[in-house]
C-alpha cells in the first residue's frame, strides 16, 4: 500500500528522469552523464553561507556555503571527521554555529530552534529509540513532541509501520529488533510529523545489503513524493543512488560540488583500468605504463589507469608486452572521485 504523505509533488518527474539515468548505467552501478535538473523554479529550503563551527581551536566546519531547493536529494560526502555530522546538527537546530548564516525554511535555527525542528524529520547516526517502549509507542510518543493529537497519531503510526515493513512488530520491544528494523523504525519515527525536509545522517551504516536496499527503496519513495532529503553517507553507491547533488567535504571545507555525474566528469575519467601485477611488481612496473590513459595511480595491490577508453588503454598495456595477473575495465565511480579529493590515507 502506498502511504499518503500528502506532500506536494514539486518537480518529482524531473527527479525521477534524472535518477533513472543514474541507475540504468550498467551492472557496475557506474553513472552515465545526465543533464542537470533545473532548480530555479523550486524555492530554496536551506541556505548556508560561510557556515563555521569551531570547538576550541579546531574548526569542525570551516566556512562552507550551499543551498538546497525543495524536493532535492542533497548529499554530504566526506571521510570521518570531515564535518558532515556537525553540519547536519547545525541544520537540525541542535548545535549552534560559531559564525556564518544558516536558514532553514527562511528561519534561523539558532533563534527559532523549535520552529525549524518542527519542519524536519531527523534520522540520527546513532539510533536513539526508546528501548523501554514498544515499537508502536515509540511513534506515538515522538508524535506527541510535535503536539499531534492521538486521533491523528494512532492511524498514522499504523501507516508508518506498514511503510517501514514493521506492522507485525508493532507490539514488540525495540531491543528485540534487528539493526535494519531499528533503522527503519527510526525513519518511520522521523516521518510522524510529515516533514518536508528529512535529515539522514549515515542512514545505512552497519546494515547488511538486504536492509540497505529496503531502506533505499523507502527513501526513494519519499523522494518521489517531493520530500527534500539531506543525506550524509560513507557509501558512494548510496550517494549515486539517492543524491541529485552532493558536496564532498574534507576537513570542514567543501572540496567539490555537483551531481554525481558532474563530479565524475570533472574529477575523473570515463573509465578505469585496474591491473594487478602482484604486490612486489606494481610499483616497478608503473614506470612502464607511463603515457597510457590520462592518469596513473599506483596502489599497494594494484595499478589504476584512468582513461576515457578503458579497452584501448588495456590494449596499449598488452602492446608494451606487459602481462598483468588480472585486469578489469570498469566505469569510473563516485568512489574514484571521493578518494581523489579526500585522499586514500586512513582517517580514524
Amino acid at each position: 500500500m502506498e502511504v499518503p504523505f500528502h506532500l506536494p509533488a514539486g518537480s518529482t518527474s524531473l527527479r525521477r528522469v534524472h535518477n533513472k539515468a543514474t541507475m540504468s548505467s550498467g551492472a557496475t552501478g557506474a553513472v552515465q552523464p545526465a543533464d542537470e535538473p533545473p532548480t530555479e523554479a523550486r524555492p530554496t529550503v536551506i541556505t548556508a553561507e560561510n557556515l563555521t563551527k569551531t570547538y576550541g581551536d579546531v574548526a569542525a566546519v570551516d566556512g562552507i556555503s550551499f543551498s538546497v531547493p525543495a524536493g532535492e536529494s542533497f548529499g554530504l560526502l566526506g571521510p570521518n571527521g570531515a564535518g558532515k555530522s556537525t553540519t547536519m546538527k547545525m541544520i537540525g537546530g541542535v548545535t549552534r554555529r560559531t559564525s556564518g548564516a544558516l536558514h532553514i525554511m527562511g528561519l534561523d535555527p539558532d533563534s527559532h530552534g523549535p520552529e525549524v525542528r518542527a519542519h524536519l524529520g531527523v534520522v540520527p547516526q546513532q539510533d536513539n529509540l526508546d528501548e523501554e517502549l514498544r515499537v508502536r509507542d515509540n511513534l506515538l510518543v515522538y508524535g506527541r513532541y510535535f503536539g499531534l493529537p492521538m486521533s491523528y497519531l494512532k492511524p498514522k503510526a499504523d501507516e508508518l509501520l506498514e511503510f517501514a515493513q514493521l506492522t507485525d512488530k508493532a507490539k514488540s520491544k525495540v531491543d528485540a529488533l534487528s539493526g535494519g528494523m531499528k533503522r527503519r523504525l527510526t525513519i518511520a519515527r522521523s516521518l510522524i510529523n510529515e516533514p518536508r525536509i528529512l535529515l539522514l545522517d549515515e542512514p545505512t551504516t552497519g546494515l547488511d545489503p538486504q536492509a540497505r536496499h529496503i531502506l533505499w527503496d523507502r527513501l526513494f519513495r519519499l523522494k518521489e513524493q517531493g520530500v527534500t532529503l539531506i543525506l550524509t553517507t560513507h557509501y558512494m553507491d548510496e550517494a549515486e543512488q539517492l543524491c541529485d547533488r552532493l558536496i564532498v567535504v574534507d576537513k570542514g571545507r567543501i572540496m567539490a560540488e555537483g551531481s554525481p555525474a558532474q563530479l565524475i566528469r570533472e574529477h575523473s575519467t570515463r573509465e578505469v583500468v585496474e591491473l594487478r601485477f602482484g604486490s612486489e611488481r606494481n610499483t616497478t612496473i608503473a614506470s612502464e605504463l607511463q603515457g597510457i590513459g590520462e592518469r596513473l595511480e599506483v596502489l599497494p595491490d594494484r595499478v589504476l589507469i584512468y582513461a576515457h577508453d578503458g579497452e584501448s588503454a588495456l590494449e596499449q598495456v598488452a602492446s608494451r608486452g606487459l602481462r598483468p595477473l588480472t585486469s578489469l575495465v570498469r566505469r569510473s565511480s563516485l568512489e574514484d572521485v571521493f578518494l581523489r579529493l579526500t585522499g586514500r590515507s586512513l582517517v580514524d
Partner: peptide
Amino acid sequence: REALRAHSPDIAAARARRWGAFYYAEQ
C-alpha cells in the same frame, strides 16, 4: 486521508513551546 494530515509546523512549534515539558513528561 484528510484526517491523517499532520498540522502545520507552525502549530507544532507553538504547541511545543507551550506544552513541550508536558509532552516529555508523558514519555
